[in-house]
């Protein structure tokens, strides 16, 4: 900036360095665990400095978890979620903020409430829906008598079925069905000055043109931040892929593979947790989202996009 502020600058560095230490210590320990043998990791005292086993552990974990195809699956699903989410959240928030209709507060809350009941809590019925995504419509048609009507009129039995288990659609769609993105866009759209919309309308721009020409260019930083978050969110999904995919050879995702390296005390009664392999695998699994985060942050920070702003 323009002025000289030496004291404040020192304070800035002190604060930032302190923050960094707090943030990085846990990750450092996980990294160290990946570089030792199982014996070292499982015995106290905890190691604070890396050992020489990183590549050995990585190679072992890579083979044991069949990571090659799993990485492609994860990449595909995460990309699908990002595209779906960024698009869907944008158009939904746009319709909610810029259109005048009754019940838009109601619709906003309907979408918003989906934040409040996590998947862990409704896992069994959600699985049932994934086994046949058209169940809700079938049931409604059965209740309302539409099925009966169709059967009587045309003689065709109504049996809708769309099985999403073991498919990319089944992995992606439910992860898109949350409110975070919509809420973020809404908060951003609310800060758009009235004058801008008025001006666009004076120029005769319809809603879609306004969205495309004015709002989207203005939302770039938000889109980039949201896309980053969603990529990492989708990549690190654990519970949902674990349930929806039984055909892990073809549709397995990397993070789920991690769970095989850490046996659950409660469900299997123990076994050997191979922490060194688990952490090595974790490092490998973390790499793509970290790259995305590092690459994308160039987009949601100023300097590269709007140098002259």
């Amino acid at each position: 900036m323009i002025e000289r502020t030496p004291l404040l600058n020192i304070a800035t560095h002190v604060i930032l360095v302190f923050g960094l230490i707090v943030i990085l210590v846990p990750i450092w320990l996980a990294f160290v665990a990946a570089t030792h043998t199982l014996q070292t990791v499982n015995t106290a005292p905890v190691e604070y400095w890396p050992g020489d086993q990183l590549w050995v552990n990585l190679a072992a974990a890579w083979v044991q978890s069949d990571f090659g195809p799993k990485f492609l699956n994860s990449l595909f699903v995460a990309t699908g979620v990002v595209i779906g989410k960024v698009t869907l959240a944008c158009i939904t928030a746009f319709a909610l903020v810029f259109f005048n209709f009754r019940g838009r507060m109601l619709i906003f809350w309907m979408i918003f409430i989906t934040l409040m009941l996590p998947l862990e809590v409704r896992i069994v019925p959600t699985y049932a829906v994934a086994a046949n995504a058209l169940t809700p419509f079938q049931t409604i048609m059965d209740w309302t008598g539409i099925s009966w009507l169709i059967t009587t009129l045309s003689g065709v039995e109504v049996a809708l079925e769309w099985n999403l288990l073991n498919s990319y659609t089944g992995l992606i769609l439910p992860l898109v069905a949350t409110a975070t993105g919509t809420f973020l866009y809404r908060q951003f759209f609310l800060t758009i000055p009235d004058e801008l919309v008025e001006a666009a309308r004076m120029d005769g721009a319809g809603p879609l043109r306004f969205l495309w020409d004015v709002l989207i260019p203005l939302s770039k930083t938000n889109i980039a931040a949201l896309a980053t978050i969603m990529f990492v969110y989708a990549w690190n999904q654990y519970l949902w892929p674990l349930l929806v995919v039984t055909d892990r050879a073809n549709y397995g995702m990397v993070v789920v593979q991690l769970s095989d390296l850490i046996p659950d005390q409660l469900t299997t009664g123990g076994g050997t947790p191979t922490w060194h392999l688990a952490m090595a695998a974790t490092l490998a699994v973390m790499l793509p989202p970290i790259l995305i985060v590092i690459l994308m942050q160039r987009w949601f920070v100023r300097g590269l996009i709007n140098t002259d702003k």
Binding site: L38, Q39, N42, G269, G270, G271, T272
Partner: peptide
């Protein structure tokens, strides 16, 4: 005290 499965584990951890 533990499950007999730990007999295997302890051998591995020598």
């Amino acid at each position: 005290f533990s499950s007999i499965a730990d007999h295997n584990t302890i051998h591995k951890l020598t």
